[in-house]
Structures are given as C-alpha cells and as structure tokens.
Design a protein around this nucleic acid. Sequence first.
RNA 1: GGUCUGCUAGCUCAACUGGAUAGAGCAACUGCCUUCUAAGCAGUAGGUUUCAGGUUCGAGUCCUGAGCGGAUCACCA
Length: 595
Amino acid sequence: MNIALDIQKALQSALQDLYSHEVEQSTLGLQPTRKEFAGAYTFVTFPYGKISKKSPQDTAQQIGEYLTEKCPTVSGFNVVKGFLNIEIADQAWLQVLNEAMADEHYGLGEKKEQSVMVEYSSPNTNKPLHLGHLRNIFLGYSVAKIYDALGYNVVKVQIINDRGIHICKSMIAWQKFGEGETPESSGLKGDKLVGKYYVAFDKAYKAEVAEMVESGKTKEEAEKQAPLLLAAQEMLRQWEAKDPEVYALWETMNGWVYDGFDKTYEQMGVDFDQLYYESDTYLLGKDAVEAGLATGHFFEKADGSVWIDLTDEGLDQKIVRRSDGTAVYMTQDIGTAIQRFKEYPGLERLVYTVGNEQDYHFKVLFLILKKLGYAWADGCFHLSYGMVDLPSGKMKSREGTVVDADDLMGEMIQIAEDHTRELGKIDGFSDEQAAALYDTIGMGALKYFLLKVDPKKRMLFDPKESIEFQGNTGPFVQYTFARISAILRRAAELGVAEGAVADNITFTANEAELIYLISECQNKIQLAADEYSPAVIAQYVYDLAKEYNKFYAAQAIFTEDEAEQVAFRVQLSGQVARLIKLGMSLLGIHVPERM
RNA sequence: GGUCUGCUAGCUCAACUGGAUAGAGCAACUGCCUUCUAAGCAGUAGGUUUCAGGUUCGAGUCCUGAGCGGAUCACCA
C-alpha cells in the first residue's frame, strides 16, 4: 500500500464530492507534517478557498472530516489555519511495514527496457587522478547505481583522453630526462611516473622561455618558439602520421598510466562497462559536419572553416571545423554521441558527468545535435557539478596544490584505523577483517562527504577538518547499521519470531516516523534519479539513521515482556538496516556488521 | 563587456520545488554508559536567509536592480 497515494485519492474524491471540483491527483501536494503538530501528512488548503467558498480553516475542517469518515488510512486530523494535518491509522503503518518485509525488491523499480549511459571520470593520461576526479567519479558511479536500482539497463563508460599535446609533453620529457625509467625500476605507480615527466616538461619549458627572454626575445615569442614545445608539437604530428617509434612510446607510457588508474579505480570501488579512447574517436563527427553543411545548419567561412550560428538562441557562433579541415572538440563530441546512440538502440538517456566549467560547451553540443535533427538529443544530460575548492582556493596542478586521489584515500583509511584503535573496537577481528573495516570506514567517510552535497554546488574541502566521523557522516550511518546488526544477531540467538508482525501492536511517534521513512524509500530513489543527485540518497540514509538512533536510545528492545512487541521492534530494526544498506550501496558505500 | 552561476547560524551543509515558529552536523556549554556498540542520545546557545524593491493569502524559494564570489565566451583540449 502507498499511504500518500491513498490520501491523494481520497482528497480527490473529497474535492469532487464536497465542491464538485475535479483535479488531477498528482496536483494534490502533500507535505510531511512539521514535528510540532500531530499527523504525518499535511494538506494545504489556502489555494482551495475559491472552490470551497469557505475560509481555509473551514475548508480544512470539512475535508478532514470527510477523510476521517471515508478513508480507513486516516485515523484523525487537526487543523491549524489552512493546514490540514492528517493522522494515519496504526493499522496502515503496520501494513506498510509488513509489505516491505514481504517484498524482496522493496524500494527497487521494475525492470525496464530502456538503457541509460553514464559517462564519468574521463581523465587525461598525462597526470594522476585528484580530488576533483573523486567527486566526478563517485557522482557518476552513484547516479549509475541509482538508475540501476530503478530497473534501467545502465552502461557505465569513460572516455579517455589519451592523445594530444599533453601526453606528447610527458613523452618528450621522458625521452630527454628519463634515462629509461619505468614503473618497475622506480617503484612509482605508472600514472605518477608519467605525471612526474609532465611536471618536468613544464619546468624545463619555463626555464627555456626565461633564457630566451633574457637573450632578447619577447615573452610571447619565447613561449611559442621554445625548442621543447616545438619538439612536443613535432611529436604530435609524428603520432598523427603513426610514426612507429613514437607510437610505441605512446602505447608504453599510456599503458603505465592505465595500470596506475586501474589501481586507483579499484581502491575507489568503481568500474566501467565500456571504455572509449579519444585516439579512436577524435576523427568522428566529420560526416556530421558535412551533413550539417548540406542541410544549411552549418556554414563555411571564406578561409574554409565551418561554423554554426547560434545567435538566435542567445549564444555565439561556434566553430565545428578548422580551416585546415581538422576537428575541434565539439566535432568529436557530436560524432561520439551519434555513435553511442547507434551502438545502443535502446538508449534513452546519455549522462555526461563533467564539471560546470563546461556548461556552455554542453549547452551548445545538445543544441547542435537537436538542430541536426536527432530526436534523442533531448535525452542527453550534462550532470554538471561544482568544483572542489581548498581553503587556499582553487586546486592548481602547476602550483602543487592538488590533492592526489591515492594519497587522500590512503589518509582516510589511516585516520579510520587510528580512530578505530583509539575506540578499542576491533576485539576479535583478524588482521584481514580489521584492514577491511578500516577501508570500509575510511572510504565511507570520503564518499559520503563528497556525495552529501548537492552536485551543482561547489564545495569546500579542508584537509584538516572536512572529514569527520561523527554527526552527518558516512561512519555515523555505518555505525547505525552495525548496531542494528548486533540486535539482529541477538534476535537470532533468542529465536525471536520472524515474518509479519502482529496487527495489535501499539507504537510511538518515533516508531511511526521510522515506518514513514521506510515508506519513502522509492520516492527518494526516484527523486534522486530525476535530479541526478546522490545527495538526496545521502540525506535519506542520514534521516533513517538519525531517527533510528533516537529509537535505539529510547527503549531497550529485548526487555519488553510481550513477545509480539519484541518481534515488532526487531523487524522494524531489520527493515531500517536493510534500507540503510540499500541506500549506502547506491552511494557506492559498504556497511560493516561490526565496528 | 555579454552570458551562466552562487551567496542561509562562527564553519560545513539542508529546507520535499511557493507553505506553519528556516533545520542538521561541526565547534562551545550541560546532562546520560552495571542494560541491544557513547562513532550514540537528550538539552542550552547561535539567524534581518548579502542588500533594496516587487509579485500574493503566504517568499530562503519567483521577478527587477545592486553588492561580493566563481565559471565561460579561442581555428585550446
């Protein structure tokens, strides 16, 4: 049963019977009743005064009486001004709980035909992953899990920017200064090693520029003519001509990077169903440019470059092909999107998890696709998220203020270990179990921290203070799960009755609130999907945990005389634990049985 | 300069999409472990929601303007 739906139906007939007014059920907004009033749902009657020809109070009173009489779900009501607070019958709550217990797939959606592709990570291969990538990847992965839970076929992808001037810079530096260094010889993770040479390039390049300026060149000239840069540009040309030696080096160094990324992804607990490489896709989209020219959506300038005019939409003119015939980023994004919808005929949505600095790019991209006549363009969505700032401001790789992903995860796990040892909570754990626990808690803290904030907003990360283990945090939710696990273990020992709870149970407001939260599960997952916001899920599991801890402190579970009452509380606990586990899994976070 | 975007308690964030006296956590202070895990619970204190107007029964939420941040507008990727 769905209590909210039930009430909406009753409200609909109330308006019909009392005032002969027809409304769509979905327009009858219910909101949770504020804590200080009795009731679970509140219906606001201010807007219906015209229909009822009564004051909001009288309208609320009249509807309240109608509901109490006609709708068995409603046990009573109270009216405060234009607010009708609806009280729910205990029987209805118990039915919700029993149905949740009986349903293996409770909270999950029906299996669907449609597919959703979620792209995230999309790294460059010239440097290691950092804190910004962590937010990106956890977000994309979580959104993928959320759609999966709703029954969609989900395809998780990343596009790897494995070609271009940036990787050539690392390659040149390695050739010049590397002396054959490899991950094996240096003991460095592959991505770190390649990143080291990217930094080395930048340093040597700057030195060259400085020297040239000293010998009389302007800064601008020097920056364009520095031998190292020319060498990198030449290498890019050789790569494009598939020069065997350059190609081999490129493959080797990228291979190192992928080995390094794999380790990082493994620690993060994320994966992908399909990988795209820019070296395969960077020539795509040229056909689309030709087609756009033919249909008049694009136009050619005198120098041969091709543009689209979006000034009617309040945007600018945008280039889609250079005068030398080569592609720009936009071109390959057009081509890649077309290719993906061809590859996956059932694809309904394509979600790009990319920072908000590219808002304009995606606005233009989707608009172009639409103009080119692709109906699926409406299914494209830019999951735009805010930057992660440090107390010192923006992260800048060149200034060494980047928070490295591997380092950060390692620190989190270490802090989790220190904290756990301090609390003396690992009695009876094997070394392996303890290590797994530290990992679970440390990663849980980090993921929760990054996901609990609305993706659209930029957020602040203070290495010293940001990640807590108390309050609104991952470990708090995990801890609640561990507590319930202890209760369930004890219940099993005591042989507490399983299955549906008796229908003569009485319960407190706190317990009703817990069942209310249980009933909200699917709504929350749906909302999270609609808004592409794991923060909705994080808030939900936090509310569950918070309310449960209140319950936990309020009374002992096993000292109650009535066996039926004990069984009810155990079952209620079990459902809370189950939904905490489900919600956390949607965030990519594990929950421990003990901590 | 054009466009987009943000501003809520000392700090980090909520506020069910226009509803009641704006809520949590951290930090501070006060209580609660012989009981199922105190990574917890209960409580105190903390607010002119950046500012000025407007729309209406009602505005943190919508509109206009101002202030302060941020992003973007390349034949870069």
